[in-house]
Design a protein around this nucleic acid. Structure first.
Lengths: 91, 91
DNA sequence: TTAACATTTAACTTAATTGTTAAATGTATT
DNA sequence: AATACATTTAACAATTAAGTTAAATGTTAA
């Protein structure tokens, strides 16, 4: 189930863009939304998909909710694709 | 565009299953379809999504159309995810 | 407690995806 | 040419996904 959620979450260009945006460090929902041309509500739903996939984590600081990337679940996706490629990491 | 198509194609469990099924070698559409519980027509459309993403290639041999996996486009997906992970392949 | 702000959730619309059945296409065989 | 077989395509129904606006929630500060 984790792999399915991960790949589904990564299959949307806005969500991939959000993840890249968070790579340098955490940002609030508003800061993230400001970078995109869709509504805050739309970004909020994308954030919830990413969070459900455990690709991001949130923590509230006062009025703001900061999101940070969590790369740990990418490992499974990487392994799946690598295995499909049929490559040996020691080759 | 290629990355988007790749990830979208990989975001479906049946399509991932098809790719794994093709890993050992090419199979005809019918042989692939026989392994799944959906109709031939449904598998045929999954095959066309995979083909459009260039994850598989087809070649007809008489009545049969054989599909084989093409892993080359996985490289871009792998690079994207690896870069997001922030890892250096020499680290 | 009221007001203001940040964010999410609800309700709704539209578009895309997946599955089904039935018709169409391509190839081989008689 | 006619039939049979493998596969795809078309047409349709059901589900899921993504966007919008408006209402709701949580937090801070007056």
């Amino acid at each position: 189930m984790a792999l399915q959620k991960t790949l589904k979450a990564l299959a949307d260009p806005i969500r991939r863009d959000i993840l890249n945006t968070l790579k340098p460090g955490a940002l609030s929902a508003g800061e993230i939304a400001a970078k995109f041309s869709v509504t805050d509500a739309s970004i909020s739903r994308h954030l919830s998909v990413l969070k459900d996939a455990d690709l991001i984590r949130d923590n509230r600081k006062g009025k703001f909710i900061y999101y940070e990337i969590n790369v740990s679940v990418l490992e499974e996706a990487l392994l799946w694709i690598t295995d499909l490629k049929g490559e040996n990491e020691n080759a």
